[in-house]
Protein backbone atom coordinates (compact mmCIF):
# COMPACT_ATOMS: atom_id res chain seq x y z
CA UNK A 1 0.00 0.00 0.00
CA UNK A 2 1.31 3.39 -0.97
CA UNK A 3 0.55 6.82 0.28
CA UNK A 4 -1.76 9.06 -1.73
CA UNK A 5 1.07 11.49 -2.45
CA UNK A 6 3.27 8.67 -3.74
CA UNK A 7 0.50 7.46 -6.02
CA UNK A 8 0.03 10.93 -7.47
CA UNK A 9 3.77 11.34 -7.94
CA UNK A 10 3.96 8.08 -9.84
CA UNK A 11 1.00 9.09 -11.98
CA UNK A 12 2.67 12.39 -12.83
CA UNK A 13 5.88 10.63 -13.79
CA UNK A 14 3.96 8.19 -15.95
CA UNK A 15 2.15 11.08 -17.55
CA UNK A 16 5.38 12.90 -18.34
CA UNK A 17 6.97 9.74 -19.68
CA UNK A 18 3.99 8.96 -21.91
CA UNK A 19 3.88 12.50 -23.25
CA UNK A 20 7.59 12.30 -24.02
CA UNK A 21 7.21 8.95 -25.75
CA UNK A 22 4.28 10.22 -27.79
CA UNK A 23 6.33 13.19 -28.94
CA UNK A 24 9.20 10.90 -29.78
CA UNK A 25 7.01 8.55 -31.81
CA UNK A 26 5.48 11.46 -33.66
CA UNK A 27 8.86 12.91 -34.47
CA UNK A 28 10.54 9.69 -35.40
CA UNK A 29 7.66 8.61 -37.65
CA UNK A 30 8.21 11.60 -39.89
CA UNK A 31 11.97 11.22 -39.80
CA UNK A 32 12.27 7.66 -40.96
CA UNK A 33 10.69 8.36 -44.34
CA UNK A 34 12.40 6.03 -46.74
CA UNK A 35 14.76 7.88 -49.05
CA UNK A 36 15.43 11.59 -49.08
CA UNK A 37 12.70 13.27 -47.01
CA UNK A 38 12.94 16.52 -48.86
CA UNK A 39 12.60 14.77 -52.19
CA UNK A 40 9.70 12.68 -50.92
CA UNK A 41 7.93 15.74 -49.62
CA UNK A 42 8.32 17.76 -52.77
CA UNK A 43 7.62 15.00 -55.23
CA UNK A 44 9.54 14.04 -58.34
CA UNK A 45 8.89 17.17 -60.36
CA UNK A 46 10.61 19.56 -57.93
CA UNK A 47 13.86 21.13 -58.97
CA UNK A 48 17.17 20.26 -57.34
CA UNK A 49 17.36 23.76 -55.91
CA UNK A 50 13.98 23.47 -54.21
CA UNK A 51 15.00 20.15 -52.68
CA UNK A 52 18.24 21.68 -51.47
CA UNK A 53 16.37 24.57 -49.86
CA UNK A 54 13.97 22.27 -48.10
CA UNK A 55 16.82 20.14 -46.83
CA UNK A 56 18.33 23.17 -45.23
CA UNK A 57 14.98 24.20 -43.81
CA UNK A 58 14.35 20.77 -42.33
CA UNK A 59 17.89 20.59 -41.13
CA UNK A 60 18.17 16.98 -42.21
CA UNK A 61 21.93 17.14 -42.28
CA UNK A 62 22.03 17.46 -38.48
CA UNK A 63 21.92 14.36 -36.28
CA UNK A 64 18.50 12.97 -35.40
CA UNK A 65 18.85 13.53 -31.66
CA UNK A 66 19.67 17.22 -32.12
CA UNK A 67 16.73 17.67 -34.43
CA UNK A 68 14.42 15.90 -31.98
CA UNK A 69 15.49 18.03 -29.03
CA UNK A 70 15.16 21.11 -31.20
CA UNK A 71 11.68 20.13 -32.27
CA UNK A 72 10.64 19.17 -28.75
CA UNK A 73 11.97 22.43 -27.36
CA UNK A 74 9.98 24.30 -29.97
CA UNK A 75 6.87 22.24 -29.29
CA UNK A 76 7.06 23.02 -25.57
CA UNK A 77 7.25 26.72 -26.39
CA UNK A 78 4.36 26.33 -28.81
CA UNK A 79 6.52 26.71 -31.88
CA UNK A 80 6.28 23.84 -34.30
CA UNK A 81 7.86 25.59 -37.23
CA UNK A 82 6.25 26.72 -40.46
CA UNK A 83 3.91 24.76 -42.62
CA UNK A 84 5.47 23.99 -46.00
CA UNK A 85 2.28 24.30 -47.98
CA UNK A 86 0.60 27.22 -46.20
CA UNK A 87 3.81 29.09 -45.42
CA UNK A 88 2.41 30.10 -42.04
CA UNK A 89 3.32 28.89 -38.53
CA UNK A 90 1.91 25.43 -37.86
CA UNK A 91 0.75 26.66 -34.51
CA UNK A 92 -1.54 29.30 -35.88
CA UNK A 93 -3.05 26.93 -38.40
CA UNK A 94 -3.85 24.49 -35.63
CA UNK A 95 -5.15 27.18 -33.31
CA UNK A 96 -7.64 28.41 -35.90
CA UNK A 97 -8.96 24.89 -36.48
CA UNK A 98 -9.00 23.68 -32.88
CA UNK A 99 -12.39 25.22 -31.88
CA UNK A 100 -14.17 22.98 -34.38
CA UNK A 101 -12.55 19.71 -33.37
CA UNK A 102 -12.45 20.36 -29.64
CA UNK A 103 -15.92 21.90 -29.53
CA UNK A 104 -17.38 18.99 -31.41
CA UNK A 105 -15.62 16.44 -29.21
CA UNK A 106 -16.67 18.15 -26.02
CA UNK A 107 -20.29 18.45 -27.11
CA UNK A 108 -20.30 14.83 -28.20
CA UNK A 109 -18.93 13.77 -24.82
CA UNK A 110 -21.58 15.73 -22.98
CA UNK A 111 -24.28 14.18 -25.14
CA UNK A 112 -22.87 10.72 -24.48
CA UNK A 113 -22.84 11.23 -20.73
CA UNK A 114 -26.26 12.80 -20.33
CA UNK A 115 -27.89 10.16 -22.48
CA UNK A 116 -26.00 7.03 -21.48
CA UNK A 117 -26.18 7.34 -17.69
CA UNK A 118 -29.96 7.70 -17.26
CA UNK A 119 -30.60 5.16 -19.98
CA UNK A 120 -28.30 2.63 -18.35
CA UNK A 121 -29.84 3.27 -14.93
CA UNK A 122 -33.36 2.73 -16.27
CA UNK A 123 -32.43 -0.42 -18.16
CA UNK A 124 -30.26 -1.88 -15.41
CA UNK A 125 -32.92 -1.44 -12.77
CA UNK A 126 -35.19 -3.76 -14.73
CA UNK A 127 -32.94 -5.96 -16.88
CA UNK A 128 -34.85 -8.03 -19.40
CA UNK A 129 -37.84 -5.70 -19.43
CA UNK A 130 -39.31 -4.52 -22.72
CA UNK A 131 -37.67 -1.09 -22.42
CA UNK A 132 -34.35 -2.70 -21.70
CA UNK A 133 -34.59 -5.01 -24.67
CA UNK A 134 -35.62 -2.32 -27.12
CA UNK A 135 -32.93 0.10 -25.94
CA UNK A 136 -30.26 -2.60 -25.95
CA UNK A 137 -31.17 -3.77 -29.46
CA UNK A 138 -31.15 -0.18 -30.68
CA UNK A 139 -27.74 0.25 -29.06
CA UNK A 140 -26.37 -2.73 -30.95
CA UNK A 141 -27.43 -1.28 -34.26
CA UNK A 142 -26.00 2.16 -33.47
CA UNK A 143 -22.78 0.46 -32.49
CA UNK A 144 -22.49 -1.02 -35.95
CA UNK A 145 -22.93 2.08 -38.11
CA UNK A 146 -19.75 4.00 -38.93
CA UNK A 147 -20.10 7.58 -37.72
CA UNK A 148 -19.55 9.07 -41.17
CA UNK A 149 -22.20 6.83 -42.71
CA UNK A 150 -24.54 7.75 -39.88
CA UNK A 151 -23.85 11.41 -40.63
CA UNK A 152 -24.86 10.96 -44.24
CA UNK A 153 -28.00 9.11 -43.25
CA UNK A 154 -28.92 11.87 -40.81
CA UNK A 155 -28.24 14.56 -43.39
CA UNK A 156 -30.46 12.63 -45.76
CA UNK A 157 -33.16 12.37 -43.12
CA UNK A 158 -32.97 16.02 -42.18
CA UNK A 159 -33.05 17.31 -45.73
CA UNK A 160 -35.73 14.93 -46.99
CA UNK A 161 -37.99 14.90 -43.96
CA UNK A 162 -37.54 18.33 -42.43
CA UNK A 163 -36.08 20.33 -45.26
CA UNK A 164 -33.18 21.58 -43.17
CA UNK A 165 -29.68 21.27 -44.48
CA UNK A 166 -27.04 22.00 -41.91
CA UNK A 167 -23.82 20.84 -43.44
CA UNK A 168 -21.05 23.25 -44.20
CA UNK A 169 -22.35 26.32 -42.39
CA UNK A 170 -19.78 26.89 -39.73
CA UNK A 171 -19.73 29.99 -37.57
CA UNK A 172 -16.69 30.74 -35.45
CA UNK A 173 -17.39 30.97 -31.68
CA UNK A 174 -16.04 34.53 -31.63
CA UNK A 175 -18.67 35.61 -34.15
CA UNK A 176 -21.74 34.06 -32.59
CA UNK A 177 -21.55 31.50 -29.82
CA UNK A 178 -25.12 30.34 -30.33
CA UNK A 179 -24.67 29.72 -34.04
CA UNK A 180 -21.33 28.06 -33.32
CA UNK A 181 -23.01 25.51 -31.11
CA UNK A 182 -25.88 25.10 -33.57
CA UNK A 183 -23.49 24.46 -36.43
CA UNK A 184 -21.71 21.74 -34.49
CA UNK A 185 -24.78 20.13 -32.97
CA UNK A 186 -25.69 17.63 -35.66
CA UNK A 187 -22.09 16.51 -36.26
CA UNK A 188 -21.66 16.07 -32.50
CA UNK A 189 -24.78 13.94 -32.35
CA UNK A 190 -23.45 11.81 -35.18
CA UNK A 191 -20.18 11.22 -33.38
CA UNK A 192 -21.94 10.68 -30.09
CA UNK A 193 -24.56 8.13 -31.14
CA UNK A 194 -22.27 5.10 -31.65
CA UNK A 195 -20.39 6.05 -28.48
CA UNK A 196 -23.62 6.35 -26.52
CA UNK A 197 -24.26 2.76 -27.51
CA UNK A 198 -20.81 1.73 -26.28
CA UNK A 199 -20.99 3.66 -23.02
CA UNK A 200 -24.54 2.52 -22.38
CA UNK A 201 -23.61 -1.09 -22.86
CA UNK A 202 -20.71 -0.88 -20.44
CA UNK A 203 -22.63 1.11 -17.83
CA UNK A 204 -25.64 -1.16 -18.01
CA UNK A 205 -23.48 -4.24 -17.49
CA UNK A 206 -21.62 -2.66 -14.61
CA UNK A 207 -24.80 -1.43 -12.94
CA UNK A 208 -26.37 -4.86 -13.21
CA UNK A 209 -23.21 -6.34 -11.75
CA UNK A 210 -23.21 -3.90 -8.85
CA UNK A 211 -26.93 -4.44 -8.23
CA UNK A 212 -26.10 -8.05 -7.54
CA UNK A 213 -23.08 -7.13 -5.46
CA UNK A 214 -22.66 -7.96 -1.82
CA UNK A 215 -22.65 -4.33 -0.77
CA UNK A 216 -25.96 -3.70 -2.51
CA UNK A 217 -27.34 -6.64 -0.57
CA UNK A 218 -25.94 -5.19 2.64
CA UNK A 219 -27.62 -1.88 1.84
CA UNK A 220 -30.90 -3.76 1.35
CA UNK A 221 -30.44 -5.44 4.68
CA UNK A 222 -29.92 -1.98 6.15
CA UNK A 223 -33.43 -1.11 5.00
CA UNK A 224 -32.60 1.18 2.04
CA UNK A 225 -35.04 1.39 -0.84
CA UNK A 226 -33.94 0.20 -4.28
CA UNK A 227 -33.90 3.76 -5.59
CA UNK A 228 -31.73 4.91 -2.72
CA UNK A 229 -29.34 2.02 -3.31
CA UNK A 230 -29.15 2.90 -6.99
CA UNK A 231 -28.32 6.51 -6.22
CA UNK A 232 -25.95 6.11 -3.31
CA UNK A 233 -24.16 2.88 -4.14
CA UNK A 234 -24.65 1.56 -7.63
CA UNK A 235 -24.27 4.71 -9.72
CA UNK A 236 -21.14 5.99 -7.90
CA UNK A 237 -19.48 2.59 -8.20
CA UNK A 238 -20.38 2.27 -11.89
CA UNK A 239 -19.10 5.77 -12.47
CA UNK A 240 -15.76 4.81 -10.99
CA UNK A 241 -15.48 1.66 -13.01
CA UNK A 242 -16.44 3.52 -16.16
CA UNK A 243 -13.95 6.40 -15.92
CA UNK A 244 -11.42 4.45 -17.96
CA UNK A 245 -14.00 3.49 -20.56
CA UNK A 246 -15.19 7.08 -20.80
CA UNK A 247 -11.66 8.32 -21.41
CA UNK A 248 -11.34 5.73 -24.18
CA UNK A 249 -14.64 6.94 -25.58
CA UNK A 250 -13.35 10.49 -25.55
CA UNK A 251 -10.26 9.50 -27.49
CA UNK A 252 -12.50 7.66 -29.97
CA UNK A 253 -14.65 10.75 -30.23
CA UNK A 254 -11.67 12.91 -31.13
CA UNK A 255 -10.56 10.38 -33.72
CA UNK A 256 -14.10 10.17 -35.04
CA UNK A 257 -14.48 13.92 -35.31
CA UNK A 258 -11.58 14.00 -37.77
CA UNK A 259 -13.69 11.96 -40.14
CA UNK A 260 -17.13 13.35 -39.43
CA UNK A 261 -16.14 16.97 -39.98
CA UNK A 262 -15.32 15.85 -43.50
CA UNK A 263 -18.94 14.89 -44.10
CA UNK A 264 -20.20 18.21 -42.75
CA UNK A 265 -17.56 20.25 -44.51
CA UNK A 266 -16.36 21.78 -41.26
CA UNK A 267 -12.98 23.54 -41.16
CA UNK A 268 -11.49 21.45 -38.38
CA UNK A 269 -8.23 19.65 -37.77
CA UNK A 270 -9.36 16.67 -39.81
CA UNK A 271 -9.42 18.65 -43.02
CA UNK A 272 -6.14 20.30 -42.19
CA UNK A 273 -4.70 16.86 -41.55
CA UNK A 274 -5.94 15.55 -44.90
CA UNK A 275 -4.56 18.49 -46.81
CA UNK A 276 -1.25 18.10 -44.96
CA UNK A 277 -1.17 14.44 -45.94
CA UNK A 278 -2.00 15.09 -49.58
CA UNK A 279 0.54 17.91 -49.82
CA UNK A 280 3.14 15.93 -47.89
CA UNK A 281 3.45 18.85 -45.48
CA UNK A 282 5.22 16.92 -42.72
CA UNK A 283 5.91 19.77 -40.28
CA UNK A 284 2.19 20.56 -40.25
CA UNK A 285 1.28 16.88 -40.09
CA UNK A 286 3.55 16.13 -37.15
CA UNK A 287 2.24 19.23 -35.39
CA UNK A 288 -1.38 18.14 -35.70
CA UNK A 289 -0.64 14.57 -34.67
CA UNK A 290 1.43 15.72 -31.71
CA UNK A 291 -1.22 18.12 -30.43
CA UNK A 292 -4.04 15.62 -30.78
CA UNK A 293 -2.02 12.95 -29.02
CA UNK A 294 -0.97 15.36 -26.31
CA UNK A 295 -4.59 16.31 -25.66
CA UNK A 296 -5.41 12.62 -25.33
CA UNK A 297 -2.52 12.04 -22.95
CA UNK A 298 -3.78 14.90 -20.80
CA UNK A 299 -7.30 13.47 -20.89
CA UNK A 300 -6.07 10.06 -19.76
CA UNK A 301 -4.10 11.71 -16.99
CA UNK A 302 -7.18 13.66 -15.88
CA UNK A 303 -9.25 10.50 -15.86
CA UNK A 304 -6.64 8.88 -13.63
CA UNK A 305 -6.77 11.84 -11.30
CA UNK A 306 -10.57 11.80 -11.18
CA UNK A 307 -10.47 8.08 -10.52
CA UNK A 308 -8.06 8.54 -7.64
CA UNK A 309 -10.14 11.39 -6.27
CA UNK A 310 -13.27 9.28 -5.94
CA UNK A 311 -11.85 5.84 -5.30
CA UNK A 312 -9.94 5.35 -2.03
CA UNK A 313 -8.54 2.04 -3.26
CA UNK A 314 -6.73 3.75 -6.12
CA UNK A 315 -5.42 6.43 -3.77
CA UNK A 316 -3.83 3.61 -1.84
CA UNK A 317 -2.07 2.49 -4.96
CA UNK A 318 -4.14 -0.59 -5.57
CA UNK A 319 -5.14 -1.40 -9.05
CA UNK A 320 -8.72 -2.53 -9.46
Amino acid sequence: MRSAAGTILIKICEFALTALLVSFFTFIAFSVIPGDPARVMLGTDASEEQVENLRAELGVDRPLSVRYLDWLGGALKGDLGDSLSFRTPVNELIKSRLPVTLGMSLMALIIVLIVAFPMAAVCASRPGSLTDRIVSAFGHVLFAVPAFALSMLLILLFTKAFGIYTAGRYTAPSDDAGKYIASLLLPSVCIALPKIAMTFKFLRASMIEFSASDFARTAKSHGLTDLKILLTHIIPNSAVSSVTVISLVLSDIMGGSLIVEQVFNLPGLGRLLLSAISRRDFPLLSGIVFYLALITVILYFLSDVINAAIDPRIRDGRSL
Binding site: E14, L17, T18, L21, V22, F25, T26, A29, F30, L248, S251, D252, I253, M254, G255, G256, L258, I259, L273, A276, I277, R280, F282, L285, V289, L292, A293, I295, T296, V297, Y300
Partner: peptide, 20 residues
Protein backbone atom coordinates in the same frame (compact mmCIF):
# COMPACT_ATOMS: atom_id res chain seq x y z
CA UNK B 1 4.08 2.32 -21.36
CA UNK B 2 4.61 1.47 -25.03
CA UNK B 3 1.10 0.19 -25.45
CA UNK B 4 -0.30 3.14 -23.54
CA UNK B 5 1.49 5.56 -25.80
CA UNK B 6 0.05 3.79 -28.84
CA UNK B 7 -3.38 4.21 -27.30
CA UNK B 8 -2.73 7.92 -26.86
CA UNK B 9 -3.10 8.51 -30.59
CA UNK B 10 -6.85 8.94 -30.79
CA UNK B 11 -8.79 6.66 -33.11
CA UNK B 12 -7.14 5.98 -36.42
CA UNK B 13 -4.66 8.84 -36.13
CA UNK B 14 -1.68 6.52 -35.83
CA UNK B 15 -2.79 4.58 -38.88
CA UNK B 16 -3.27 7.84 -40.81
CA UNK B 17 0.24 8.87 -39.79
CA UNK B 18 1.67 5.59 -41.03
CA UNK B 19 -0.14 5.90 -44.33
CA UNK B 20 1.04 9.50 -44.68
Amino acid sequence: VLSNSIMCFPGILLALMAVA
